[in-house]
């Protein structure tokens, strides 16, 4: 077996899946988004679907909303992940249980997080009832709207539950290895704890934070399940609007739904390319 070709042969089945299913799927989506409908005899393509959605208020609001959800969840996750990783980095009694707890949510399906938020934070949910018992909230409507609300609080909380450990575990690993020794060095040079954090630890954490938050952002931006479970009537995330339109009995909406999905895809791919460019620039 030719050594030069061996890796390609080994990769062949995987590449077939990627090319035919993944790239193929995207390709067919693009084609359909370009209004190519041979079924009704239309063999030309045009950008009508894109023009339509980009002038439509619902779509634009969803675009901003999806961005907001993804950004909000990612940002909060980064902040909390850093706080907890900083707290866990040194040795202490009970550390292994703490670290186990920290990484616990990682393999748990997102939907479970959504169900929990649903049961905890709705106006008649568990937390609301505790507030009621403590005398803070008299009735369900006195409890703030955190689920099915236009600010997407419930969605962000559910995403936070999953994102935070994902980012945090990477950061913690870094802090425990190179972090600690650099900290000692910085201390011996006269840096106080804030200076150590800002000038030494934070820069060291940066690559881990960047690589994991790109992933969480991408997931948040294109999320369907959690916004569907916990979201309100308006606004809706891009994926929900796209899927609704896809299921519309009126097939003339199909191209628009395809176009929306492609917008999501292009956005995420651009983000990844941007990140990789920044990463190679830095090193």
């Amino acid at each position: 077996m030719d050594e030069k070709n061996k890796p390609w042969l080994l990769l062949l089945p995987a590449l077939l899946v990627i090319v035919f299913l993944f790239l193929g799927g995207i390709l067919f989506c693009i084609v359909q988004s370009l209004n190519y409908q041979p079924i009704i005899g239309k063999t030309t393509i045009d950008l009508e679907a894109y023009r339509s959605i980009f002038t439509e208020r619902t779509f634009l609001v969803s675009l901003v909303y999806s961005f907001y959800i993804a950004f909000g969840a990612t940002f909060l996750s980064i902040v909390t992940a850093i706080i907890i990783a900083m707290a866990l980095r040194k040795t202490f009694i009970g550390k292994s249980i703490a670290v186990f707890t920290f990484q616990f949510p990682i393999p748990i399906p997102h939907i479970v997080s959504g169900v929990a938020i649903l049961m905890l934070f709705t106006q008649s949910g568990f937390i609301s009832r505790i507030f009621n018992m403590m005398g803070i909230a008299e009735s369900p409507s006195s409890f703030p709207e955190l689920v099915f609300d236009p600010m997407g609080v419930g969605i962000i909380l559910a995403l936070l539950w999953k994102f935070m450990p994902f980012i945090g575990v990477s950061v913690l690993a870094l802090l425990q290895t190179s972090g600690l020794v650099y900290e000692e060095q910085a201390t011996s040079l006269g840096a106080n704890s804030w200076q150590r954090f800002r000038y030494v630890l934070l820069p060291i954490m940066k690559p881990a934070i960047m690589s994991t938050s790109i992933l969480t952002f991408a997931y948040g931006f294109g999320a369907y399940e959690l916004p569907f479970l916990l979201g309100g009537v308006y606004p809706k995330t891009l994926a929900i609007v796209a899927f609704e339109r896809y299921n519309n009995v009126d097939l003339t909406y199909r191209p628009e739904s395809m176009a929306m999905s492609i917008v999501i895809t292009i956005f995420v791919v651009s983000l990844i390319l941007l990140y990789r460019k920044m990463a190679t620039q830095n090193s």
Partner: peptide, 24 residues
């Protein structure tokens, strides 16, 4: 390039893939 390509489906939301391939 292959490495990136192989990991891409795990990052990119797959709505477009599913809706696109459904016709096929």
């Amino acid at each position: 390039l292959i490495s990136t390509l192989v990991t891409l489906p795990a990052i990119v939301p797959l709505l477009a893939v599913a809706m696109g391939i459904q016709v096929v």
